[in-house]
C-alpha cells in the first residue's frame, strides 16, 4: 500500500494491522504516527479492514479547545479512552502503550507473561521482567545477534498446547539503554527520540525483518532466564529451582489470577519443560555469549 493510500485509508475506514495472533484495526489522521509505523514495522502489512478484528483502535486529536494551542493525541479502544491524552508528537508511544493495555486487559485466551521472549533453533527463551532487569536492553541485543524476537513485553502462552506465540513489536529503550544499543548494534533500525515521557526518554528499536516475516511461527519454551543488570558484575548464570521459577512466573503473569487453574497448569507445565536460571550481568556482550552457550 502506498504512503498516500495508507494515509487515506487510515483516516477513513482504518487500516488492519496483523500483530502475531491479533488483528488490529487502526483509524488515525496523524501522519507522523503512520510514518513511524511504516519505518519501524517495514514492510508494514496494512490492509483494508475486513472480517473480525481483536482490537478497534483510534489515535487522533481529541475535540476541545486545548488541542488548538497544544496539539494532543487521544487513544481510543472500542470508542473508550483508557488514558488521558498525550502530546501529539508522542502519538507513537501512546499507540504502543495503548496496544499493550488492550492486549493485557483482553487477550485472556492466552496466559500472558510479562516477559520478553526470543527464539533460537526452534526453541524459546523467556526473559521475565523484574524491576532493574534490563530486559529490553538484553532483548534488543539478542535480537541483533541472531535471535528471533517474539516479544519484548508479552510471553503469549497457549495453555492448551504449551506453545509460545510471537507478536513482534518495537522494543522501547529508555534513557542510557538507547546509546548502549546504538553502540552494540549500529545496524539497529530505530525510530525518533521521544523525550520526557513518563518513563524518561524513549527510542524504539524495530523488530528484525526475520522476526516480522516469521511472526506466525510459534515455538515451545526451553529456557527461563531471570535477568538482572548489575554494573559491577561481568556475567553470572545460576540455576533456579523449579518451585522458585514457578512462583516468580506466576507473580509476573498479567492474568494468572484471572485464568486460575488454567494458568496454574499451564505455568507448571511450562516450568517443568524448561531449565531456569538467574542471570546477573553488567556486560552485554558477555551476557549474549553466555545465553548463546546456554542454548547451544
Amino acid at each position: 500500500m502506498s504512503a498516500s493510500r495508507l494515509r487515506e485509508a487510515a483516516g477513513g475506514g482504518g487500516i488492519a494491522l496483523r500483530l502475531g495472533p491479533f488483528r488490529v484495526r487502526l483509524v488515525t489522521r496523524l501522519p507522523a504516527l503512520l510514518d513511524t509505523l511504516q519505518r519501524l514495522y517495514a514492510p508494514l502489512e496494512a490492509e483494508i479492514p475486513a472480517g473480525i478484528h481483536d482490537f478497534h483502535v483510534q489515535v487522533n486529536r481529541p475535540g476541545g479547545l486545548r488541542g488548538r494551542w497544544r496539539p494532543q493525541a487521544l487513544f481510543l479502544l472500542d470508542g473508550e479512552a483508557p488514558f488521558e491524552p498525550f502530546p501529539e508528537d508522542h502519538a507513537f508511544p501512546l499507540f504502543e502503550w495503548g496496544l499493550n493495555y488492550s492486549i493485557a486487559t483482553r487477550a485472556h485466551r492466552y496466559c500472558m507473561l510479562h516477559s520478553a521472549v526470543l527464539e533460537k533453533n526452534g526453541r524459546a527463551l523467556i526473559l521475565p521482567a523484574m524491576p532493574g532487569s534490563g530486559k529490553s536492553t538484553l532483548c534488543a541485543a539478542l535480537m541483533h545477534r541472531g535471535w528471533r524476537l517474539f516479544s519484548d513485553e508479552f510471553g503469549l502462552l497457549r495453555p492448551e498446547s504449551g506453545e509460545l506465540l510471537p507478536m513482534p513489536r518495537v522494543i522501547p529503550l529508555k534513557n542510557e539503554s538507547i546509546d548502549v544499543i546504538r553502540t552494540f548494534a549500529p545496524e539497529a533500525v530505530t525510530g525518533p527520540r521521544f523525550p520526557k515521557t513518563r518513563k524518561g526518554d524513549v527510542v524504539h528499536v524495530a523488530p528484525t525483518a526475520e522476526s516480522l516475516a516469521r511472526q506466525q511461527e510459534g515455538a515451545m519454551p526451553a529456557w527461563i532466564v531471570f535477568p538482572r543488570y548489575r554494573p559491577d558484575v561481568g556475567c553470572r548464570l545460576r540455576p533456579v529451582p523449579g518451585s522458585q521459577a514457578f512462583v516468580r512466573l506466576s507473580n509476573n503473569a498479567f492474568n494468572y489470577h484471572l485464568l486460575g487453574e488454567t494458568a496454574y497448569r499451564a505455568l507448571t507445565n511450562l516450568v517443568k519443560a524448561c531449565r531456569s536460571h538467574d542471570l546477573q550481568y553488567g556486560d552485554l556482550e558477555a551476557a549474549v555469549k553466555t545465553l548463546d552457550q546456554l542454548v547451544s
Binding site: 529451582p241 494468572y256 487453574e261 496454574y264 497448569r265
Partner: peptide, 22 residues
C-alpha cells in the same frame, strides 16, 4: 487441591479460593 511436587517444595492450587501456595 491441585498438587505439584517440585524437587524442594510443593505448590498447591486451591480451587475454592483461586489461590496458589508454595
Amino acid at each position: 487441591l491441585l498438587w505439584e511436587a517440585w524437587e524442594e517444595a510443593f505448590t498447591v492450587y486451591h480451587r475454592a479460593t483461586g489461590e496458589t501456595h508454595l
